[in-house]
Design a protein around this nucleic acid. Structure first.
Lengths: 192, 192
DNA sequence: CAGAGTTGCAACACTGATGTTGCAAGTGCT
DNA sequence: AGCACTTGCAACATCAGTGTTGCAACTCTG
């Protein structure tokens, strides 16, 4: 084999390999959830055996992706301080933060994990989001005649859609998203 | 084997089997896109070999699902006459009609088919939808400052989300969906 | 009742993906 | 240079899913 492709040994290098594989796996699996380990390895620029050395099984790899993405996810929500700012501000901040993560880790984030810790974090975020929407309705940001559960589903759907965008930065998308969520895309003057 | 499980022969029966398999496949694959033929057969209440007799391969089965769903889809859009009614009416009618199909054929409908005929129908519907949104903007139903492409993406996302609902009928969902699309979920009075 | 048609079941071959191992070779640290 | 570590590669075993076939059994029609 050639020198340039050979191992550079030691821990920091191994960690870099792990990250490279995780990122490649996200890229490949988001396009094709049933892609093979071979395809993932190829995308990461390593041999398939290297992937298996780092992750005992396919499940272990996916679990690691979920774990990594979930930590980023939780950190993103935390950084937005949704409990201590006005609902509109919180909504915007959470949206922008989450989008930054979801754009890069869409596959890993939108999986019902079997890992209890990951599931716990997800349902925790779910709860915080629910509380945010209830508060938003109580303060009059959300219409009183709208089911907050539906509003939340719409919000998730918009996040998912916005995260598919290429080229726009998270802040631009968050602005557009929150505007669309709250005002819709129609005028107020009824029938066209 | 027992009598009650045995074949009842003849053509109308064979057709019923095909339909049963298609419906079971949709049910199973919408929950797990990589489910096996065995699982599909079990859900349909037939032996795996029977599925293989009716559909030469897994691809053939999925293609048949796409074909069936696409025909329903095209018929649904046609029945709504989106070109000959005011945009708001068209939007509502199309939404209700499409939801009726998408609730039952969500998996088969949201796949980029390799069958050129299916792909053609899909892009045709896409075009009609695009024209509808442009018209909606021209007539003032959509705000002038909203990118119609974004509005359409939001619309698709809402359709997808609404189609996941259980228990509500298509008309109720269409009303809710169009209302949310045009007005959003917020009040007009800004910060809460 | 006879024949056509369909099904379930068991058995088989084939394929692609998964996971493992041994070995040679390269890199960085000491 | 020697050591620790990691990688690529080739080879292998295993397994699950796919697709095929032969056969017996059943039902419906005529």
């Amino acid at each position: 084999m050639e020198a340039s492709q050979q191992g550079r040994a030691l821990r920091s290098d191994a960690e870099r390999t792990v990250r490279t594989i995780l990122e490649a796996a996200e890229r490949v699996l988001s396009k094709n959830p049933s892609a093979s380990m071979e395809q993932i390895a190829e995308a990461a620029g390593v041999a398939r055996t290297t992937v298996h050395r780092r992750f005992a099984s396919r499940d272990a790899l996916v679990s690691a992706m979920e774990g990594w993405a979930t930590r980023q996810f939780a950190a993103a929500v935390d950084s937005a301080n949704p409990e201590t700012t006005p609902p509109l501000v919180a909504l915007y901040q959470v949206t922008a933060s989450v989008l930054r993560v979801k754009i890069d880790w869409g596959f890993a984030m939108s999986r019902a994990s079997s890992d209890p810790e990951v599931a716990r974090v997800h349902s925790e975020v779910e709860d915080r989001c629910e509380r945010l929407f209830l508060k938003a309705q109580a303060t009059g940001l959300l219409r009183a005649d709208v089911d907050p559960a539906w509003a939340r589903r719409v919000y998730y759907a918009l996040i998912h859609e916005a995260a598919q965008s290429q080229g726009d930065d998270a802040d631009t998308l968050a602005t557009l998203l929150v505007d669309t969520l709250l005002r819709g895309v129609g005028t107020d003057r009824g029938l066209g």
